Simulated scan of single mutants.
Amino acid sequence: MDSNILKKLPILLIIVLLSIVFNIVAQNSAKAEACIRDADNKIKVKVSPSNDSGGNGQIVSHTAGSYVKDSCNEQPLFYKVKFYRFMVCTADPFVAGTGDTGAEQDFSSCEDIFNSAAGKDIIITPTGQEDLLEGDLVLPIGSYPFAAVIVDNELKVKHQETFVKADGNDPTMNGFHASTYSAGTICWSIDKTTVYTNRAEGQQVGSVGITESYIATATNNTQKLGMACGTSVGANYDYATEIIDSVDSTCDTSNDCGTTFRPYTGYEEIGSIGAEMAGALLQTDEAIATTLANAQRIFGAFKLGTPLVITEDIAGLELQFNTSESVSVDFQYDGGGTDIQAKKIGVEPFGIKFVITNK
């Protein structure tokens, strides 16, 4: 990028070897909505509670002994995200819209560290790390109080869990199958695509004129479940995909996501990454998205608690991903409330902590 910083400071550039610069690692944090587990690390579920009449909402516990949820969040075993850009900025690149209308973002003060039209898939694991760049990194010296990323809005996870009843016995977990339920105490992700807003199938997703295949999960429909279950993990264990077609919490709250589209959400403080984060949905050309159909990128802006200060002493730049709650394990009762159906593996967005190491 031909930036003002590079024009003013043409000699103040440093080259850092890739091998110590840009590792992507998973970062653990407190799990406010974590699944409650027994001593064997199995998720505790409650089958057919007497006060629920087979309805949703009282299947898993978020606090010991209180079964009031139909989902719980965990750290995924494998989290796949496609990166298009990573930038550091001297001014805020996020521009909030007005009402339900988004605004174009401002990247004029940003320096590209990674920029790829084709994108690059990164797989994040709880203990692994992976390089984003493929070569030496040229960094302009300066102080950067903002950072930004642009990623695909189709996030993927590969994950499995084992379940136990509240009384310690084995539950019957029903999952996907072409004809009859797959059943057992272990459930795993399969190659199914869902959308974050859970809107009906057949609506347009992606580029104009293209309708992607995704499911809207349905009770008592074996082909409309997003996990398979059994006594051991099956051969169809695969990545599940979630299309993030909304970043606006008011849309989720009012349950009008199918009719109302707001492509941005303002800054919120995220203590685990030491920054505030705002987001917007973009089109493939990085223009602000205007409909559910043309939203295909997630733009994340980070207002850093401590600016990234790049000097001659820099030894590395690391992105630490907080994926500690990025899998939502979702459940529903069958029509009679006697068995639990593994509804889907939902994918939640991530947080990023930016860390510079010096020599």
Rank of each mutant, 00 (worst) to 15 (best):
N322K: 00
F331I: 10
G336V: 14
T323S: 14
I345A: 11
V329R: 02
S326H: 01
F302R: 00
A295F: 09
G300C: 11
R297C: 05
I314D: 02
K303F: 05
T338C: 11
L292T: 13
L317T: 08
I310L: 11
K303E: 10
F302L: 04
S328G: 10
G337M: 07
V309H: 03
N294L: 09
F331Q: 04
R297Q: 05
T338G: 13
K344E: 15
V327E: 02
I314E: 05
G300M: 13
I345P: 00
S328I: 09
R297M: 04
E312H: 13
P307H: 02
Q320I: 10
F299V: 01
D339A: 14
N294R: 02
I314V: 15
L304W: 03
G346K: 00
V329P: 03
T311R: 01
Y333D: 13
E318F: 13
L292E: 12
Y333G: 07
T338E: 15
Y333I: 07
Q332C: 08
I345T: 09
E312R: 09
G337L: 08
T338P: 08
F302W: 06
G305Y: 06
I340R: 02
R297P: 01
G346I: 01
I314R: 01
L319W: 06
I310Q: 01
E325S: 05
D334S: 10
G300K: 11
F331L: 10
L317F: 15
G316P: 08
N294K: 03
L308F: 04
D339H: 12
A293C: 08
G335D: 15
I314K: 02
I310A: 01
R297W: 03
I345E: 10
L317H: 08
N294M: 09
A293G: 08
Q296Y: 05
D330M: 11
Q332E: 13
L292K: 11
D330E: 15
P307K: 00
T311C: 04
F331M: 08
A293I: 08
G346A: 02
S326I: 01
V329I: 14
F302D: 02
E325A: 08
L308M: 06
G316C: 09
T306I: 12
Q332N: 11
Q296W: 06
Y333F: 14
Q320T: 11
R297K: 10
A342C: 09
K344Y: 14
T306H: 07
F321L: 10
K344R: 12
N294T: 06
A293H: 07
L304D: 03
K343G: 04
A342S: 06
G305P: 07
K343P: 06
K344W: 11
K303H: 08
K344I: 10
A301Q: 03
Q320E: 15
Q320Y: 09
L292I: 14
E318A: 15
G300T: 13
G305K: 08
Q332F: 09
S324T: 06
A301M: 04
G346D: 02
S324K: 00
S328N: 12
Q296S: 13
G346M: 01
I298N: 05
T306G: 04
I345Y: 11
